[in-house]
Design a protein around this nucleic acid. Structure first.
Length: 354
DNA sequence: TATGCGTGGCC
DNA sequence: TGGCCAAGCAT
């Protein structure tokens, strides 16, 4: 073990975070945590993880649940394909591996939702395999420590960083080594304003000249985010409200929403809403009073959504683009997993009409 | 190789 | 306020 790894592990022993999925002998718990942590902060994940493990304590419990139950438990965490893939993978593990998670990273990587990083993380943390990981934290820490100038999100930069991670891996300690680098990246070697004075590796860091740390890692420029005008129809009948289920795979896949869609350039809001409802559900509506304006920023675009109270005027709704439809009682809206904006509308609907 | 996929916190 | 970022994966 070299100087770098020894100091890193010493630091981890003293300052590593105590997290609910650490120190468990349960590979399933490690797996769940790794999926939840993809592109998501630890503080956000902790309460979801606790609730998840109480609701689906074992891999078999998860495999026996319904997709809707799983999406409900995931609601608010984002990137919902993670939940669907985790559920599908659990069923696959029960069907093909007798309910035991495979230990080999190349086999793990064949399961939906498990890529190169997650396979290595599970193999090293849950099964003690000597495999290096490379995630956002490690990219940043290693790019600074070894002053890597190649873009960290390019294949060339990745290859350099991956070999650095591997060269320094202390045999028999991969799980701790990987997690130590993640903790260092999350608590000390921060993206902005790194706390170099608290870093156990500061004197080894090749980017320790003033300002150089924050110039690492080098990343490719991003595109600007478009802004869309969107409408949604709140259609009520007999104390119930019309919901549409979004098709699987895309944005908020499998979740429920108040039907509607994008408004065209120069198109009036009410016209756009009538057109969307006609195309989506095959019915005509009368657009009534406004029921709120909701602004929301997704990662790659932002929307301004106008909701309207509406009535059916022509025909019974049938699912066309949407996968399914429901007339939902206001009391039961919690049972329909939704994205953030639709959940806001649902809550306000209950407050006003229940 | 580039793009789509959520949400919350920070400045 | 809008932009950036946070334990990636699938296509």
């Amino acid at each position: 073990m070299n100087e770098f790894s020894r100091r890193l592990l010493d630091w981890y022993e003293r300052f590593g975070r105590r997290l609910p999925w650490r120190g468990r002998a349960d590979p399933y718990a490690v797996w769940v945590s790794e999926i939840m942590l993809q592109q998501t902060r630890v503080e956000t994940v902790v309460p979801y993880f606790e609730r998840w493990m109480a609701r689906f304590p074992t891999l078999a419990d998860l495999a026996g649940a319904s997709e809707q139950e799983v999406l409900s438990a995931w609601e608010g965490l984002g990137y919902y394909s993670r939940a669907r893939n985790l559920w599908r993978a659990a069923r696959q593990v029960v069907a093909e591996y007798g309910g035991r998670l495979p230990e080999d990273p190349t086999i793990l990587q064949r399961l939906p939702g498990i890529g190169r990083y997650t396979a290595a993380a599970i193999a090293s943390i849950a099964f003690g395999r000597d495999v290096p990981t490379l995630d956002g934290n490690l990219r940043r820490v290693l790019a600074r420590l070894f002053d890597v100038a190649a873009p960290a999100d390019s294949p060339a930069g990745e290859a350099v960083l991956r070999s650095l991670a591997e060269e320094n891996l202390p045999p028999g300690r991969a799980g701790d080594y990987n997690q130590a680098l993640m903790d260092l990246g999350a608590t000390v070697c921060l993206p902005r304003k790194p706390r170099c004075s608290a870093c156990p590796l500061a004197d080894l860091c090749r980017a320790r000249a003033a300002g150089v740390q924050e110039a690492r890692p080098v990343l490719k420029p991003k595109k600007e985010t478009p802004h869309y005008l969107v409408t949604a129809a709140v259609v009520r009948r007999n104390g119930k409200v019309l919901l549409a289920q979004r098709p699987p795979g895309g944005l908020l896949g499998g979740l429920w929403e108040f039907p509607g869609g994008k408004v065209g350039e120069g198109e009036a809001l009410a016209d756009g809403l009538r057109r969307e409802i006609r195309e989506e559900l095959g019915v005509g509506i009368r657009v009534g009073e406004a029921f709120g304006v909701y602004r929301h920023a997704y990662t790659h675009f932002r929307i301004t959504l106008h909701a309207f109270l509406c009535e059916l005027t022509d025909g019974e709704p049938r699912p066309l683009a949407a996968a399914d439809l429901a007339w939902a009682a206001l009391e039961a809206l919690e049972n329909y997993p939704m994205g953030k904006v639709d959940r806001q509308i649902a809550r306000r609907l209950k407050a006003e009409f229940l």
